[in-house]
């Protein structure tokens, strides 16, 4: 058993480094590949109740500081997705199904139609009408969706939160009240980019969400605030691209970290981060639990 093994949000993981939702999560084969590369768990692309082609291109704007995306929740619907989850499972690690819907009933019926090791509720995508953050910015909606899903499934339920709000802690508390086993923070920050040659917004959807190194300090702050206020575990996401970033997230209170945009560099990021984490702990003769929330104890 490596020094990185432990429980994260109700799942026993070999290590706390996971693939984030919507990143190389459309096919079972790419989920399995993340597992082979060393991920402790993988989260699928968010799936809904009917097939969606997503927004027209451009769907991403590459920047030096990260990425703006407006994929538009493309997915083949949960009915076609069980097969991909099952293929993903052959990687030997937990597969977390990310799901989205427009109301508690839709979320609950998708969750009960899928078999996965855990569910992550996408209440935070910033660029899809009627879904994601359009629900997830209201604490009452977060609570009722969480409650509806919890009532229908026996596996852990994580709630992915949006940072596009005045007070993310309020949303985290709502998820906790709804019975969530963990919260995941953060999804992307609302953003846009304009082409100065033509004046056109670059994204096909005009607006999108910012991810990558640019949002890491925002994510660290959100994780810190949530960890300070909640009793349930917090899983950190946002700009983690090396083991140093992962340690920072864990010191802010994260039980696990998710990697998204950094996968641009290839699947090797998992190995780099996991090795870096192990070596850091070994050098200092520390355990993961010694790091978790360290920043909160340093006052």
């Amino acid at each position: 058993m490596s020094s990185l093994a432990g429980e994260v949000g109700g799942l026993i993981l070999e290590n706390p480094v996971m693939l984030a939702a919507g990143i190389l999560g459309t096919t079972g084969a790419s989920l399995r590949r993340a597992a082979m590369a060393g991920a402790g768990a993988v989260v699928t692309k968010s799936v809904g109740s009917i097939p969606r082609d997503g927004h027209p291109g451009p769907t991403v704007v590459p920047l030096d500081i990260g990425l703006i995306n407006a994929m538009g929740l493309p997915n083949p619907s949960y009915r076609e997705f069980q097969e991909e989850i099952d293929i993903g499972k052959t990687g030997g690690i937990p597969v977390v199904a990310s799901i989205f819907g427009a109301d508690p009933d839709e979320f609950a019926s998708i969750a009960s139609g899928l078999t996965a090791d855990a569910f992550e509720l996408n209440l935070s995508c910033p660029h899809a009408e009627k879904y994601g953050a359009e629900l997830g910015r209201y604490p009452e909606a977060v609570q009722s969706v969480t409650k509806a899903v919890k009532a229908r499934v026996r596996v852990p339920v994580w709630v992915k939160l949006t940072p596009n709000t005045a007070d993310i802690v309020e949303l985290g508390l709502a998820a906790q009240d709804g019975g969530a086993d963990a919260v995941v923070a953060i999804n992307t920050l609302k953003a846009m980019a304009i082409d100065i040659e033509s004046g056109y917004p670059i994204l096909g959807n005009r607006f999108g969400g910012l991810s990558g190194p640019a949002i890491k300090p925002v994510a660290v702050r959100c994780v810190y605030d949530l960890s300070s206020a909640l009793d349930i575990p917090v899983i950190g996401a946002g700009g983690v691209s090396c083991f140093v970033d992962a340690i920072e997230m864990i010191m802010a209170g994260a039980s696990g970290v998710q990697i998204g945009t950094a996968l641009q560099r290839g699947y090797g990021v998992f190995g780099e981060i996991i090795e870096g984490l192990s070596a850091y702990l070994e050098r200092r003769s520390m355990r993961l639990s010694d790091l978790r929330g360290l920043a909160m104890r340093r006052t």
């Binding site: 990143i23 190389l24 084969a29 989920l31 997503g54 991403v60 493309p74 945009t261 996968l263 641009q264």
Partner: peptide, 19 residues
């Protein structure tokens, strides 16, 4: 192809998951 930067998963080829 959607993102063309290797993150969205749209272009992945079974069974290796080649981007």
């Amino acid at each position: 192809f959607k993102c063309a930067v290797g993150v969205c998963g749209s272009c992945c080829l079974d069974h290796e998951g080649i981007r």
